[in-house]
Simulated scan of single mutants.
Amino acid sequence: MRKVLPFMYRTSVSAGLLIAMLLAPSAMAAEKVVARSGNVTVTQDELETFLRSLDASSRQRLVADKPMLERVVQNRLAQKAVLAEAESKGWTKRPEVAAMAREASQQMVMRSYLESISQAPQQYPSDAELQAAYDANKRALTAPKTFHVAQIFVAAAGDEAAVSKARKDAEELAKQARSGDFGAIAKARSQEPRSAANGGDTGWVSEAEMVPEIRSNVVGMKVGAVSEPIRTPNGFHVLKLLEVREAGLRPLAEVRDQLRATMRQQYEADAVQANIAQKVSAQGGNAVDKAALDSVVSSVR
């Protein structure tokens, strides 16, 4: 059966799309501007094109994380500023740069064409193929033990007196949280804005995702328990263990869409390679002038 690639998230724009974005003309006046620095802009159309280039999972995570999305826009703005500076100095007219641009353009055309003729059939994979891939990849589809944790965070920076005060504040908050509404206290007093807005909820995390100080406490807690303040380099964390999910094989229904997308990507990647191999085979054994090749090798030594 077809080997399935390991699951991965594509979190950055592909090299081809990045080049296309950098070489694109400046935004027209009618386009909505998302970010501006001097004469350099990032338009709504550019940002939407980038987001649509991502797989669905990465796209949803990025649009849900506004600070990260802002950093992406800022990086794009910086890239365009560098491009504008290079163009102002005639960099695009340098022969070696023009040659690289032609090569990049040819590569994008080739990749786009190969992708267009290598599309997986609409019905692929079938239910039977999905089940077979699921059965063959159970190790990769086994989720680790995870912990649903909420926190109240008290920052601790400065001298010993400031840290001591932060510790006492955290101890008092832990005491209140054990007898009161943890979520309400976290929303009102926690100094970590993102989780505070959700009543302290930090979501589900595995042991591997926790810093050692947090991990050593969480793994020994009972559901519903509130910890003593835990010191980390940034401050003190008062934790509440909300739920525990034991390690286990994720059901097919849960991973069906992700597995299907991965199988289709693998199918299309294999089809691209098969097309290239077919073109190589069609050349025959005499396509390369060995004497000319030896001359090239000698000239670059």
Rank of each mutant, 00 (worst) to 15 (best):
Arg2Gln: 09
Leu5Gln: 15
Leu5His: 13
Pro6Leu: 14
Tyr9Gly: 11
Ser12Gly: 07
Val13Phe: 01
Val13Tyr: 00
Ile19Cys: 02
Ser26Asn: 11
Ala27His: 04
Met28Cys: 11
Ala29Cys: 07
Ala29Trp: 04
Ala35Leu: 06
Glu48Arg: 02
Phe50Trp: 13
Arg52Asn: 07
Ser58Tyr: 02
Arg59Glu: 10
Arg61Ile: 08
Met68Cys: 04
Leu69Ala: 07
Leu69Cys: 05
Leu69Tyr: 04
Leu69Asn: 00
Val72Gly: 01
Gln74Cys: 06
Asn75Thr: 15
Arg76Trp: 15
Leu77Trp: 02
Ala78Gln: 08
Gln79Glu: 15
Gln79Arg: 14
Lys80Phe: 04
Ala81Tyr: 01
Val82Arg: 11
Ala86Phe: 13
Ala86Asp: 07
Glu87Tyr: 09
Ser88Lys: 14
Lys89Asn: 11
Trp91Asp: 05
Pro95Ala: 13
Ala98Asn: 08
Ala101Thr: 05
Arg102Pro: 00
Ala104Gly: 14
Ser105Arg: 15
Met108Trp: 06
Val109Pro: 00
Val109Leu: 07
Met110Val: 14
Ser112Lys: 11
Tyr113Leu: 11
Leu114Met: 09
Glu115Ile: 06
Ser116Trp: 11
Ser116Ile: 07
Gln119His: 09
Pro125Glu: 15
Asp127Val: 13
Leu130Ser: 03
Ala132Arg: 08
Ala132Thr: 04
Ala133Asp: 02
Thr142Ser: 14
Thr142Arg: 11
Thr142Lys: 10
Pro144Gly: 07
Phe147Pro: 00
Phe153Leu: 06
Ala155Thr: 11
Gly158Met: 10
Asp159Phe: 00
Ala166Gly: 04
Arg167Phe: 13
Ala170Pro: 01
Glu172Leu: 15
Gln176Val: 04
Gln176Lys: 07
Gln176Glu: 13
Ala177Thr: 01
Gly180Ala: 15
Asp181Leu: 12
Phe182His: 03
Lys187Asp: 13
Ala188Tyr: 06
Ser190Arg: 00
Pro193Tyr: 11
Ser195Glu: 12
Ser195Leu: 14
Ala196Met: 05
Ala196Leu: 11
Ala196Trp: 01
Ala197Tyr: 05
Thr202Lys: 11
Thr202Val: 11
Gly203Trp: 15
Glu207Gly: 01
Glu207Ile: 01
Glu209Phe: 10
Met210Trp: 07
Pro212Leu: 03
Pro212Lys: 06
Glu213Val: 04
Glu213Asp: 12
Glu213Asn: 09
Ile214Phe: 01
Arg215Trp: 05
Ser216Met: 10
Asn217Ala: 09
Val223Pro: 05
Gly224Asn: 02
Ala225Gln: 14
Val226Arg: 01
Ile230Trp: 08
Thr232Trp: 02
Asn234Pro: 02
Asn234Lys: 01
Phe236Gly: 00
His237Met: 06
Leu239Gly: 00
Leu239Phe: 04
Lys240Gly: 03
Lys240Ala: 08
Lys240Pro: 07
Leu241His: 03
Glu243Leu: 03
Glu246Cys: 01
Glu246Trp: 02
Gly248Phe: 02
Arg250Phe: 04
Pro251Arg: 15
Ala253Leu: 08
Glu254Met: 08
Val255Gly: 04
Gln258Val: 12
Arg260Gly: 03
Met263Tyr: 06
Gln265Ser: 08
Tyr267Gly: 13
Ala269Thr: 08
Val272Glu: 12
Val272Lys: 09
Asn275Ile: 03
Ile276Glu: 12
Ala277Arg: 09
Gln278Gly: 13
Gly285Glu: 06
Val288Met: 07
Asp289Trp: 01
Lys290Phe: 12
Ala292Val: 11
Asp294Met: 12
Ser295Ala: 13
Val296Tyr: 09
Val296Met: 10
Val300Tyr: 15
